[in-house]
Amino acid sequence: MRVKVKRWHGVAVWRWDVPNEEVCGICRVPFDGCCPTCKTPGDDCSLIWGECTHVFHMHCLLRWLQTEGSRGQCPMDRRTWGINFTKLFFLL
C-alpha cells in the first residue's frame, strides 16, 4: 500500500506573541483578554509593541497618550513612545 496526502485541513490557534499570563501594564487585564472598553478579545482589540519592548492593549495605550500627563511617553519607563513596527505588519 502506498498513501499520499492530497488535501490537508489544518487547524491552528493564534494568540498574541507575549509571555503567558502577562497582563497589560495599564488595565491589568491579561493580554489574552481584551481592554476594558472592548467585549471580545482578538482582532478587534489588538496589542501594541513599543520600541522600548513594552506591550499594551492598543486602546489602553492610545487613551494614555491622549492624556496630557503622558507627554507622549511610555507609561512604564517614561521613554518617548515609539511603535515597534516589526510586530505590526498588519497595520501597514
Partner: peptide, 10 residues
C-alpha cells in the same frame, strides 16, 4: 492542498 482555519483563542 493545504487549508487552514486560524482560530481566535477566546
Amino acid at each position: 492542498d493545504l487549508y487552514v482555519n486560524v482560530l481566535t483563542q477566546g
